[in-house]
Design a binder for these strands. Structure first.
Lengths: 138, 138
DNA sequence: GACACCTTTGACGTTTGCGTCATAGTAAAG
DNA sequence: CTTTACTATGACGCAAACGTCAAAGGTGTC
């Protein structure tokens, strides 16, 4: 395995060491392995997870709370699926699943809306760039 | 003209009165007209501007600071354009314009990047929705 | 094994983006 | 012209997301 320490993890993900520890503190990411001396050791998988959190935060504009919420939903859905496939014992309530479905669909709609607004804003940006460029080429 | 007071403005834009005053305080929006008794009176144009700020913040995930930056750039570009068209006297430095152009192009690239990440996240969301739906239709 | 350079935990500090009073003035209705 | 419902300004409060010490211990290397 390729273990790295927090400093390198920070450099790879582009966030600070403090932020990484903070994300662990609020259970946004799985606690990584530790050395005998309590030093955090990250695997490639840990780094991937971290990158996803960073993306979701910076790119999608999710708050850490929203992220936690989404991650827990995803986990529960996957858990439920496993449960069903292995034992046919549906322990998660139907009503709960329906609630989750509604929430997810809402999220997707919002995302669609965001992307459309982004496109129009991008158009505006391109316009402005055009103007500046034409001013430069006189 | 169709003047409205802050309460209606808040209802139309979907943000609070406090937020509107705050945006004015940090110069994110133009101060609206006032009545003799110092009461803020908003026009349709003011409302449009407010809506744009709200969009940029909530939809594009810009911080208010980033927004201020973008707005000031835009203003300066348009000012410069007017100047050029009216007097042919190019008072804004070439170098400054080039800097602005670079900044804008960077912004556009970042936006592009964001949109791509959003698409892939949307795919993930759709997957998850599929799974939940299939669990519901058993 | 001594040295320089990490890391950890804990705790307090800071910024952003408003919320929430309190106090005083304003607008419109009756 | 009084009442009732907004509004303005100022000031303090607050949660989120870290920043920034400080103190103590771990790690690699010469």
């Amino acid at each position: 395995m390729n273990w790295i320490k927090i400093d390198e993890a920070a450099k790879i993900t582009g966030i600070t060491k403090r932020a990484i520890r903070y994300y662990e503190e609020i259970s946004l990411i799985q606690p990584p392995e530790r050395s005998d001396g309590q030093v955090r050791l990250y695997t490639d998988e840990d780094i991937k997870q971290l990158k996803r959190v960073v993306d979701a935060k910076e790119v999608l504009g999710f708050s850490l709370q929203e992220l936690q919420h989404f991650l827990s939903i995803k986990e529960r859905v996957l858990e439920h699926k496993d449960q069903y496939e292995s034992t046919k014992d549906t322990t998660i309530q139907q009503s709960e699943l329906e609630e989750i479905a509604v929430g997810l669909k809402e999220q997707e709609k919002m995302l669609q809306h965001k992307m459309e607004k982004m496109k129009s804003f991008q158009g505006e940006l391109k316009d402005l760039i055009q103007k500046v460029d034409s001013l430069l080429n006189l």
